[in-house]
């Protein structure tokens, strides 16, 4: 199985074409196996915990604007993944325009989110510190607003999304749009590297999106998903999963 695809450039020299799409299947199958294993483990072997009640006082977890951001971003990422892999898996749709429009949407909401997170939100709540790394190994330690897994997922998605956006913008500059005509490619090897990075980041994004969706729909975590829709979690859910000393909701 190849990892990187190569081609001959106009001069006959071998240059990188992009990531091998064989890896798409590797990523898909690996993610499925791991998640299935996790699901089986949780169903059969994991210690069953009582599910905290969703009734009772409600604690605000996400502002409406942040929920909107999340779902726009989620939608655009899913559209980008779907349109991006459509030609690879042989799905015949006119994908490119949808792809770059979704990419632009993602870019704008990510920029919005970064600015909002830095200046208007509790940026530190998402920072990963050394103490966070003890959390998975000690049941007594409860997280603040975001668990170690949530922070890890967030930062992984941050890196991957920024990577696909950065490389995507460069590739975007190489196609015709309503605003510009594409330039001649001066260096095909460099272009290939951008395709490689874009593809590799996409594979990572697919994997982490799959993990994210899996956990979002797991019974013990689904209240977080609900909170991303409604904005709140119950006090019981908060107390069961969070350290109220570390997270003091408004």
């Amino acid at each position: 199985m190849e990892i990187i695809r190569y081609r001959r450039d106009v001069w006959g020299e071998e240059v990188i074409l992009g990531v091998s799409w064989d890896l798409l299947w590797v990523v898909a199958v690996t993610a499925l196996i791991l998640l299935a294993a996790h699901a089986i483990f949780m169903a059969v072997l994991a210690k069953k915990k009582a599910k905290p009640s969703s009734e009772g006082p409600r604690i605000k977890r996400h502002d409406a604007i942040d929920r909107a951001f999340h779902w726009i971003m989620a939608g655009s990422v899913l559209v980008l993944i779907l349109t991006g892999i459509a030609p690879i898996v042989g799905l015949r749709i006119s994908w490119l325009n949808i792809h770059w429009i979704a990419g632009l949407v993602l870019t704008f909401v990510v920029i919005f989110h970064i600015i909002r997170a830095i200046f208007w939100q509790d940026f530190k709540a998402m920072l990963l510190g050394p103490s966070d790394f003890k959390e998975p190994f000690d049941e007594k330690i409860k997280p603040g607003k975001y668990s170690f897994e949530q922070k890890g997922m967030h930062w992984a998605m941050t890196v991957l999304v920024i990577a696909v956006i950065a490389t995507g913008i460069i590739l975007f500059l190489h196609i015709n749009t309503p605003w510009w005509n594409r330039p001649a490619v001066e260096n095909e090897a460099t272009l290939g590297i951008f395709f490689l990075l874009h593809g590799t980041a996409t594979l990572g994004l697919i994997a982490f999106t799959a993990i994210h969706i899996y956990f979002a729909v797991r019974p013990e975590k689904i209240f977080y998903t609900r909170s991303m829709v409604t904005g709140w979690i119950s006090e019981a859910e908060m107390k069961e999963n969070h350290d109220t000393n570390k997270w003091k909701p408004e």
Binding site: H174, I175, N181
Partner: peptide, 25 residues
């Protein structure tokens, strides 16, 4: 041909015989 660029639709591409409509890359 499965590559990642077009040589014909470029600033100096020699595209006399090429498309007027619906060119996607």
């Amino acid at each position: 041909a499965g590559g990642n660029l077009c040589y014909a639709d470029t600033p100096e591409g020699m595209n006399r015989e090429h498309a007027l409509f619906n060119a996607s890359r």
